[in-house]
Write a protein that binds this DNA or RNA. Structure first.
Length: 374
DNA sequence: GACCCGTGGCC
DNA sequence: TGGCCAAGGGT
């Protein structure tokens, strides 16, 4: 399996990498909020937020989250709704549900102390091999690998690894390589140094090899093939899906929001009533039928706008259709609620719904939306 | 192993 | 402009 032009580091090379990387890290590490902390809870939260999410995006969320839930106990005892609200806009919402459940588990079964062994931590919801390694090495000073996308990119270049990094087997191999390198004294710093190098120097498209502390040890650089790594299978293009958003108002200027199902895309999040548009039917009819089936009839009106939003694997092409509730006094089906227009400005919804709101309320954006449609 | 699950920035 | 990419994990 291993390619002939790959090579392992000799003991001398291992020592070189440790020393050079750590000394580079000591000089160049960014001053990030969670790097001022050793509280395993705070490290944990930061690691979950950072999953597939850029540092600059995470910082304000992290600050707000810690202000609101300063300790593990605070988070464990907080109502679900409030915790989710603190996450709105960050994406990958199953992360926050799993985190909340896991924190409650720690509060109940571990006396509020984040477990310091691999097996126990791995059993917590939303905690995979990366997060285990990050928390145990950074907060508990344990020699456990924390292999993320950065580390895989760095390793794939240093060792000229030709295997597809999207495969689980490749990640496991990287973890073995990491174990050979992690020093006894500073495991957390070393893991972070690898990631920091990937983020600041060994970047995907324009690596700054001239500033890299590990050029001498880099097999890909030696071969003049840095850009060839990492090898990564191309993902499939997001599948286009037509949907209808209902912009349903009552006589008092209130708008109807719907909570999405507990599973699937945007699980449990609030947004405009959303119907997938399977057949080639008019959006008005689709919306009318959807509400009729719920026992809450509406009169559909004109199309108010168009919105497109790309998720990781779906492309929503949405038509926003207005509707009027014929009898707003009747009780709403579960998972629906009325909100006043003013409230909307302060409500944080998933981005696709925010787009819909601004597309309809802001005529300029509405025109842009229509332009995109043509 | 394949697919599901958001968002924003960059070139 | 749009495809790619980022401190992954669940099913």
């Amino acid at each position: 399996m291993e390619k002939s032009d790959e090579k392992q580091l000799d003991p001398e090379g291992v020592e070189q990498v440790r020393t050079k990387l750590l000394s580079w890290y000591d000089k160049n590490r960014r001053d990030l909020p969670w790097r001022r902390e050793r509280d395993p809870y705070k490290i944990w939260v930061s690691e979950v937020m950072l999953q597939q999410t850029r540092v600059d995006t995470v910082i304000p969320y992290y600050e707000r989250f810690m202000q609101r839930f300063p300790t593990l106990k605070d988070l464990a005892s907080a109502p679900e709704e409030e915790v989710i609200k603190a996450w709105e806009g960050l994406g990958y919402y199953s992360r926050v549900r799993n985190l909340h459940a896991a924190v409650r588990e720690v509060a109940e079964s571990y006396g509020g102390k984040v477990p310091d062994d691999r097996e126990a931590m791995s059993r917590l919801k939303g905690v995979g091999p990366y997060t285990v390694g990050a928390v145990l090495s950074i907060a508990y000073n344990q020699r456990v690998p924390a292999v993320d996308g950065n580390v895989m990119r760095v390793f794939s270049r240093i060792y000229a690894i030709e295997e597809d990094i999207t495969k689980a087997a490749t990640r496991r191999r990287m973890e073995a390589l990491a174990m050979d390198l992690i020093p006894e004294d500073r495991p957390g710093d070393f893991n972070q140094a690898l990631m920091e190098l990937g983020a600041l120097i060994c970047s995907p498209s324009s690596p700054a090899c001239d500033r890299c502390p590990l050029v001498r040890e880099c097999r890909a650089y030696e071969q003049g093939r840095v850009k060839d790594f990492p090898v990564k299978r191309k993902g499939k293009a997001p599948l286009p899906v037509s949907v209808v958003f209902g912009w349903v108002v009552d006589g008092e200027g209130r708008m109807l929001l719907e909570r999405r199902p507990d599973k699937g895309l945007l699980a449990g999040m609030w947004g405009l009533p959303t119907v997938e548009r399977r057949k080639d039917d008019s959006p008005q009819r689709i919306l009318e039928r959807y509400f009729a089936e719920k026992g809450f009839p509406i009169e559909p009106g004109p199309v108010l706008g168009h919105v497109e939003h790309v998720f990781s694997h779906r492309r929503w092409q949405a038509v926003v259709v207005s509707g009027r509730a014929s009898d707003a006094t009747r009780s709403l089906p579960p998972g629906w609620r009325w909100v006043a227009e003013e409230e909307l400005d302060f409500l944080a919804l998933p981005k696709v719904y925010e787009k819909a709101l601004s597309a309809v309320k802001d005529p300029v954006q509405l025109e842009l939306g229509l332009e995109v449609e043509n």
